[in-house]
């Protein structure tokens, strides 16, 4: 039981981060490594602000803002200074390591007595699932806001820039600015995930960002691959039913954002399962890497998307 609750709590807060990775990897087609720095950035900001007694929900917002900023910087390095996408992320997460040390002033901050979003009174009705309930609320709020955004004109432009940059230029829009905006929203979400994770674990550790990109990518790929096959079947069944309304409702299948969240929980479950089977925590990173490789190979995501789609 404790394992299930722990998996759900952690899976959901990693899910918020995975939504950010979804934006960069799937929508922008930009392998953004900044997340390894922006995830702990959100946590570092959280640790400091909670220590000062700031409202924990306000802390979520400030962390989101810090992430936005780091994304903007990555975007500026890539777009204005014309540094390659992968390198821009590497530069940023290396720089953020120092920032993440300086913000709290030390590498480890325990948060035992501070009030977090998980200490809210109203959560008592959920019993031992109080943590899951809170994580779910924040995660779903982030997901629905992102879904809404992606349906706006601005969101369309974001999807277009990853799909066909030339078209965005044709629409008389600065493709660089759209990319910067996308990177900023993505890293905002990643930092928000870091903040929730930190409040949940009740500590901040400088090393908590290591491998974030792997967890994020794994979640995105598991989620989107798994539900792609599902939604295909639903469309077919919709056609058999022959009802137009049924068909339009099911044509889209599961929203990619939902799939990504499910992917994050599933990924966490895999890791928890391995631990429960007696895996030595020292082997953790190796197992993570092998698992990720397996997912990549099975998901056929090794090849980078071909630009142009001609």
């Amino acid at each position: 039981m404790a394992i299930i609750i722990g998996t759900l709590e952690q899976g959901l807060s990693y899910g918020i981060m995975a939504l950010g990775v979804y934006i960069t990897y799937k929508i922008l087609d930009f392998p953004d490594l900044t997340v390894d720095g922006s995830f702990p950035l959100g946590a570092a900001v959280t640790a400091v602000l909670l220590g000062k007694g700031v409202n924990p929900f306000l802390v979520l917002l400030v962390s989101f803002g810090a992430g936005l900023l780091s994304g903007i910087l990555t975007g500026l390095i890539h777009v204005k200074l014309k540094v390659r996408d992968l390198l821009s992320g590497i530069i940023m997460f290396t720089a953020l390591y120092t920032v993440n040390l300086k913000i709290p002033g030390k590498a480890y901050v325990p948060l035992f007595t501070e009030t977090t979003i998980f200490d809210m009174e109203f959560l008592q009705v959920f019993g031992s699932f109080y943590g899951v309930a809170m994580a779910l609320m924040v995660t779903l709020a982030a997901k629905f806001l992102l879904d809404l955004y992606l349906k706006t004109k601005s969101g369309y432009l974001l999807r277009a820039v990853g799909d066909n940059e030339v078209l965005v230029v044709s629409l008389a829009k600065d493709q660089g600015l759209v990319k910067i905006a996308g990177l900023s929203i993505a890293n905002g979400l990643v930092s928000l995930g870091g903040s929730v994770y930190c409040q949940q674990q009740r500590y901040y550790d400088i090393s908590m960002g290591t491998g974030t990109i792997v967890i994020g990518l794994a979640s995105v790929i598991i989620g989107t691959k798994l539900f792609k096959s599902f939604s295909g079947k639903w469309v077919v069944s919709g056609k058999i039913a022959g009802s137009a309304a049924f068909l339009t409702r099911n044509r889209k299948g599961v929203r990619p954002t939902t799939a990504v969240l499910a992917g994050a929980v599933l990924y966490k479950a895999c890791v928890a399962g391995a631990m429960a089977l007696g895996l030595d925590p020292q082997n953790m990173k190796l197992v993570t890497a092998v698992l990720f490789l397996l997912i990549l190979v099975c998901g056929m995501e090794r090849k980078r998307k071909v630009k142009g789609n001609a």
């Binding site: 277009a160 142009g308 789609n309």
Partner: peptide, 9 residues
């Protein structure tokens, strides 16, 4: 022809 449209939209 791929330059003038977004394939995934």
């Amino acid at each position: 022809p791929a330059m003038g449209t977004c394939p995934n939209m």
